[in-house]
């Protein structure tokens, strides 16, 4: 029987009992639950990482403007600026994350990880991590499996969809997946990897989904960048052995609870937050289709 990824406690227990690397039960899960072969899984994880790498490259080299005009080559501007606010690596992390997410907004090819709205985060994190630490592709592929296991648990106990749990469910989950992947790649312990997930959720909790004009552009793109930064800060804290105090499974429960109690206006409906500002409304008027037939209200049966 494969591990079903219902909580982090059982994943950790499985590790203690078997000593298997963290990605092994994720492989086993897919083989048993979805009738996949191991070769198929590695091949498609490798393809996913190739698409992520390609998205980063596309976002940093090609013209990235969206039909609404809200996306205008932000990643390339960050990459090109001579001003480095923290370090060259940090600047690259931000540029790469923005780049991959801009590709999504501009109808390019991405990996929804876990969703299209959060599709810049893992590419930015993993390509930067690989670059800095000279990791081989196999290590990154293993880390993607670990990230998938993290997402399975969050999906089971909270949500991965902005329409259900707000932005915390999308970019928060992607950042948590990234933080766990970072600690895994750098040889941290299993509790440290899961603590990185816990700390990331603590940082992302409460974030609402309030896209201007309902488009996956503002603030989604800049939030991908901040989520990537939070994944690194959380991994740094966790790998040093700092205790998150609230255990990871309880952080996931809190994520679910906050998502459930969030008002509908903050769940991808473009009714609240930034979408409801005067500028947000003005942009909405410009980009929305105006030639529309509105049916009369029908009394409910």
């Amino acid at each position: 029987m494969s591990l079903l990824f219902q909580d982090f406690a059982s994943w950790e227990k499985h590790y203690q009992e078997t000593g298997e690397p963290l990605y092994q039960p994720v492989l086993q899960y897919e083989i048993e639950q979805k009738d996949r072969t191991e070769a198929y899984i590695w091949e498609n994880i490798a393809r996913a990482y190739d698409v992520m790498r390609e998205a980063v490259k596309t976002g940093l080299t090609q013209n990235m403007t969206s039909r609404s005009g809200m996306v205008n080559n932000g990643a390339k501007k960050v990459a090109a600026t001579p001003i480095t606010v923290l370090s060259p690596d940090f600047k690259l992390l931000i540029a790469r994350t923005l780049g991959a997410k801009e590709v999504n907004s501009c109808m390019g090819r991405v990996v929804a990880a876990p969703t299209a709205g959060a599709s810049g985060i893992l590419p930015g994190i993993l390509t930067t991590l690989q670059d800095i630490h000279q990791l081989d592709d196999r290590k990154i592929h293993e880390a993607l499996l670990v990230a998938a296991g993290i997402a399975l648990i969050i999906e089971e106990n909270a949500s991965l969809a902005g329409a259900v749990g707000g932005c915390q469910a999308e970019t928060g989950s992607a950042a948590a997946m990234g933080a766990g992947a970072i600690v895994y790649c750098l040889g941290g312990t299993v509790p440290q990897a899961f603590n990185a997930v816990a700390i990331t959720i603590q940082c992302m909790l409460g974030l609402v989904c309030d896209p201007v004009a309902g488009l996956v552009e503002v603030p989604c793109i800049v939030r991908n960048a901040s989520a990537a930064a939070i994944a690194f800060s959380s991994a740094q804290i966790a790998i040093a052995g700092v205790d998150p105090v609230i255990p990871v499974d309880q952080c996931v429960m809190a994520l679910g609870e906050v998502g459930q109690s969030m008002e509908t206006r903050y769940k991808e409906t473009a009714l609240g937050g930034l979408a409801n500002t005067p500028t947000g409304r003005a942009i909405e008027k410009q980009v929305l289709v105006q030639d529309i037939e509105i049916l009369p209200d029908t009394p409910s049966e």
Binding site: Y29, A116, E155
Partner: peptide
Amino acid sequence: KSSIFDMIGPVMIGPS
């Protein structure tokens, strides 16, 4: 049960 390729995937053209 979800597939791990719902978590890392699908590969798709954006934005949504």
